[in-house]
Amino acid sequence: MPAIQPRVFGIAGRSGSGKTTLIEAMLPLFTAMGLRVNVIKHSHHDLELEPPRKDSARFRQAGAQEVMVASPYRFAIVHELRGRPEPPLAEQVARLAPADLTLVEGFKHEAIARLEVYRPANGTEPLHTEPDSGFVAVAAPEDALLDTPLPRLPLDQPQAVAQFICQYLQLPVRA
């Protein structure tokens, strides 16, 4: 299994905490810093990326292991696991184009540095208190009552979170 590179950083949290919103807000900030960023989002649901009657879906249903759909604007590769186990995160990262940073949403049990997006108002327990969780910081609303030894970042300030990630990973910011 290939080793996960230090440029991988996780964003984790309970459902509805704002993980996707935070990543979406940080992406243009990282781009403005001159960084190339990939994102891997883990899903527990079956992925339907094309309507069932489209040619690409028909190829998969007929037994193709991978189907690429290409256009002048983007391309996508759909790889069928066909009962094989889900590949580990390191293998997924290796499939991506080279980047300065790969943000990972989910994959809570992989051995990577991660930040928890935490909203006490959701009424759920934090994840960063679990042993060996890999959390290096917590992003929470500024008015949230939260007792943690980890660095605490303001959730409504994606620039501060992005800067923390860059500093933590010692990323070469070019802008």
Rank of each mutant, 00 (worst) to 15 (best):
P88Q: 12
A121S: 15
Y73D: 14
G106W: 07
Q92C: 10
L101E: 09
Y118M: 01
E116F: 01
R95M: 14
Y118Q: 02
E105A: 00
A90S: 14
R84P: 00
R82F: 01
A111P: 08
T129C: 04
P88V: 14
Y73P: 00
K108P: 06
F107P: 01
A111C: 03
I77K: 01
L89Y: 10
H128V: 08
P98C: 02
T124A: 10
A94Q: 12
P87G: 11
H128C: 15
V93A: 12
A121Y: 06
F75D: 13
L115D: 06
Y118C: 03
E105Q: 04
P126I: 04
T129D: 12
P98G: 02
P126M: 05
L89N: 13
L96M: 15
E91W: 05
A113C: 09
T129E: 11
P85C: 06
A113E: 14
L115I: 09
A94P: 00
E86A: 05
F75H: 15
R95H: 09
N122D: 14
E110R: 01
A121E: 15
F75N: 13
Y73G: 11
T124Q: 11
E116I: 07
A94G: 01
V104C: 04
N122W: 09
V93E: 08
Y118N: 02
A113P: 13
V93S: 03
P120T: 02
T124M: 08
P120G: 07
G123E: 06
V104D: 02
P88L: 11
P87H: 13
G106L: 06
Y118L: 05
G83Q: 08
P98Y: 04
K108E: 14
R82K: 15
F75M: 15
N122Y: 09
I77P: 00
A99F: 05
P85M: 07
I112D: 13
R119H: 03
P88K: 05
E116T: 05
V104Q: 01
P87R: 10
I112A: 10
T129S: 01
A99T: 11
R119C: 03
A113K: 12
L96I: 04
L89P: 14
V104F: 05
Q92T: 03
Y73F: 05
T124H: 11
L127G: 04
P120L: 09
T129N: 05
T124R: 12
T102L: 10
R114H: 05
V78D: 00
V93N: 09
T124N: 03
R74H: 15
N122M: 15
L89R: 10
P98S: 05
N122Q: 14
R84L: 12
L101G: 08
E116Y: 02
A76Q: 14
L101T: 06
L89G: 12
